[in-house]
C-alpha cells in the first residue's frame, strides 16, 4: 500500500471520527445531512458484499467493518437518538435519494466491467459515492452557520478521494497497474464536486473567518 492510499483511508476515517465526536460528545447533528449519511450506508453495503467471500488483508477487512458499522450507527443516532434527532435540520435536508440512486443503478447496469451481481453492485457503489455528498453540500449552502466540526468533516471527506486520485496515479505509473476507468472517472467526479467547497473552506481558513457558502 502506498502513502497516498493510506492518507486517503486515514482522512476518510478521521472524517467519520469527527462526525461521531460531534454526535456523541456534543449530542448534535446540526448541519449534517441524513440523506447523505443514508447514501453512504447504501454505498458501503453494496461495495462490501464481498467481505464474507474474498479476503484481501486484515487491514482491508477491519476497515470495511469499521466503515459499515460507523455509517449505520451515524444514521441510527440521527434518526432515533432522543437528543440528537432533535438537532437534525429536517426541513432543509430535502434532497431526494431516489434522484441519485436510480440513475446510478441504471448506469451501473449499462456500464460495468462484468455483468455479475458483485461487479454491478460494486460499480453502483462507486457511482453513488461520487454524488452522495450532494445533499450535504445543498444543506451547507442553506445553513447560515456552519460550525467548525461540520466544515472540517466535509473537508476531510473531500480530501479522502483526492488522495485516492494520487494513489491511482501512483499505482498506474509506479506499480504498473492496469487502466481502471470506472473508479478513476467516478473518483475524479467525486473530487471535482468538492472544488467549490474547497475554495470557500480554504478562503475562510486563510482569512480566519467563519465558513459560509454563498447561496
Amino acid at each position: 500500500m502506498n502513502a497516498f492510499r493510506l492518507a486517503g483511508d486515514m482522512t476518510h476515517l478521521l472524517s467519520i471520527i469527527l462526525l461521531l465526536h460531534k454526535i456523541r460528545a456534543m449530542k448534535s447533528c446540526a448541519g449534517i445531512s441524513l440523506r447523505t449519511q443514508e447514501l453512504y450506508v447504501i454505498v458501503f453495503v453494496t461495495r462490501y458484499v464481498d467481505l464474507s467471500m474474498k479476503y484481501y488483508s486484515f487491514y482491508n477487512s477491519i476497515m470495511k467493518i469499521v466503515f459499515l458499522g460507523t455509517s449505520i450507527s451515524i444514521v441510527w443516532y440521527m434518526r432515533y437518538h432522543k437528543v440528537v434527532k432533535q438537532t437534525y435540520n429536517k426541513d432543509v435536508d430535502t434532497f431526494r435519494h431516489i434522484f441519485l440512486i436510480l440513475p446510478c443503478f441504471v448506469l451501473a447496469l449499462l456500464i460495468n466491467r462484468a455483468f455479475t451481481v458483485i461487479e454491478v453492485l460494486w460499480t453502483f457503489s462507486l457511482y453513488l459515492e461520487a454524488v452522495a455528498i450532494l445533499p450535504q453540500l445543498v444543506l451547507l449552502q442553506r445553513s447560515r452557520n456552519i460550525d467548525n466540526l461540520t466544515g472540517n468533516y466535509v473537508f476531510l471527506l473531500g480530501a479522502y478521494r483526492a488522495f485516492y486520485l494520487l494513489n491511482w496515479i501512483y499505482r498506474f505509473f509506479i506499480e504498473n497497474h492496469q487502466v481502471r476507468w470506472i473508479p478513476w472517472l467516478s473518483g475524479l467526479l467525486q473530487t471535482a464536486i468538492y472544488a467549490d467547497f474547497f475554495y470557500y473552506y480554504i478562503k475562510s481558513w486563510k482569512n480566519r473567518e467563519k465558513l459560509k457558502l454563498p447561496a
Binding site: 476518510h12 464481498d50 484481501y56 488483508s57 482491508n60 466503515f67 504498473n176 497497474h177 492496469q178 473508479p183
Partner: peptide
C-alpha cells in the same frame, strides 16, 4: 500491466 485489482481498495 500487473494485477491492478481495485477491489482491494476501500
Amino acid at each position: 500491466p500487473s494485477n491492478g485489482n481495485v477491489h482491494d481498495e476501500l
